[in-house]
Design a binder for these strands. Structure first.
Lengths: 249, 249
DNA sequence: CTAAAATTAGAACGAACGTTCGAAGAACCG
DNA sequence: CGGTTCTTCGAACGTTCGTTCTAATTTTAG
């Protein structure tokens, strides 16, 4: 019977062993992808027999769930601790970025698994993870809105706010993009450390969403709704492709 | 024998049929991932028998290669056409973003496959795609450097340039992050169209890399080298994980 | 030391995988 | 019309997949 999911309980032999296996699993999932990695790969890497693995978890799916859930909750946990330190909007946003970048740099593989195998888990664990993810997203939106409010003015409407002429959702997703893309390119040997990196990303974002003398139009947009998706038949008009092949022997 | 890979040659029946299959393949690869999707899935979706598929291409791997190579070269092709229109640095950067966003919105699934199955292909096709990708990346770096130069000053050093205090590589990767993350969240029914989206992303990026009155330190950094990676043993000190499991019946 | 509990692993399960083969059907050209 | 070429497919190939069964081994506690 499952007990907890958070950090505690590294005490028992069982938990320590499971944690070790999860690290190995994170490694191959990051390397070969969830579907591409086999339990036999994990067996080989961990040195535990194929059947032996199943003493610690009940399925490959649950293995992925453990990894993702732990990664997510740890990030949020640490964020909450750090955010308690200040109420200044800009400082809080910088803390958010710093926290995310810190974890991405320290646990690059776990972040890759989190970002890469995002929509693998289905109805059971999938919805729970989606909720955790939404929670994290909402924290970020809250920080950005706090920032917009603190800067005074420039906010247009209530849910379709404009940040320097930029939709809040777009801005937040842009920030997540910069941070979550890290795993594809970050190389500790040539790239700045987490502190510098977080500052650079924060700078781009903060300057980016604040109004300045723009080259194009200042900000006349305010017509963007929130995500409430109504069901509908999607036409999806995409066609066109390549040619070339083998053409029969 | 393979002939071309670019846009032409939708003439023959063979090419038209292959193009159709590639569209179906893009769809399931986007939905289930390359490893997760089976040839039987593709057979079912396309209505072509399992064996019949192999008349048009020689392996699942080649299928992925076709999709990725075509997507990449099309984007670059269109970009080159559009860039010919102007020499103004800012306008050119905006064209780059617009072109990328346009394609991402119009061919969301293809972009997902491109971004998601980035490191699946190995030595043969893999290196060719990597070269194409690097070419695209270099175009973007060129545009950003042109922008920095046009803004005058602020450039520090030659390869470790500072754009408003931000490493060029970081800035470019941040931009790619914003654009390539699109496929994870963009919803045509609630989000701005490509034009608006491209403008918002460009605005964030352009304001972001230009110096302004900052809240924190202005820009004293200039100590970041370029990617020249020397081979070395990576220690990779990451440990720590979750607990909880089933604990034997 | 002994007995119970926790932990490991060899071997095998059915299912699904990518791919191939040979023959049958459809289209084309004289 | 007949003959050649292009296109399609059912059936099967060998392999690998996630998972389970059962028994043996190791650890723990009295």
């Amino acid at each position: 019977m499952p007990v907890s999911v958070t950090s505690r309980a590294l005490d028992t032999r069982f938990d320590r062993r499971l944690a070790e296996i999860l690290d190995y699993a994170t490694e191959i999932f990051a390397e070969k992808g969830y579907e591409g990695a086999s339990m036999r790969d994990l067996s080989r890497l961990s040195g535990i027999s194929l059947a032996g693995l199943y003493y610690y978890f009940e399925s490959k799916e649950k293995l992925l769930y453990f990894i993702q859930q732990h990664t997510f909750t740890t990030i949020i946990e640490r964020l909450r601790e750090r955010l308690a330190a200040t109420t200044d909007p800009e400082a809080r946003l910088r803390i958010f970025v710093r926290n995310h970048v810190d974890y991405s740099v320290a646990k690059q593989k776990a972040m890759k698994v989190l970002a890469h195998e995002d929509d693998v888990l289905k109805n059971g664990y999938g919805t729970e993870l989606a909720a955790t993810k939404r929670e994290y997203y909402r924290i970020c939106v809250g920080l950005v809105e706090g920032l917009v409010k603190a800067d005074g003015l420039k906010s247009v409407g209530s849910n379709a706010a404009a940040t320097g002429g930029i939709n809040t959702r777009t801005a937040v997703m842009g920030l997540f993009g910069m941070m979550n893309w890290l795993y594809t390119w970050y190389n500790p040997r040539v790239d700045p450390d987490a502190e510098v990196l977080a500052r650079e990303i924060s700078d781009i974002f903060l300057r980016g969403i604040r109004a300045g003398k723009m080259a194009s139009k200042p900000s006349i947009d305010s017509l963007q709704r929130e995500p409430v998706g109504r069901p509908e038949k999607k036409p999806d008009s995409s066609k066109e492709t390549t040619s070339s092949g083998k053409r029969r022997k």
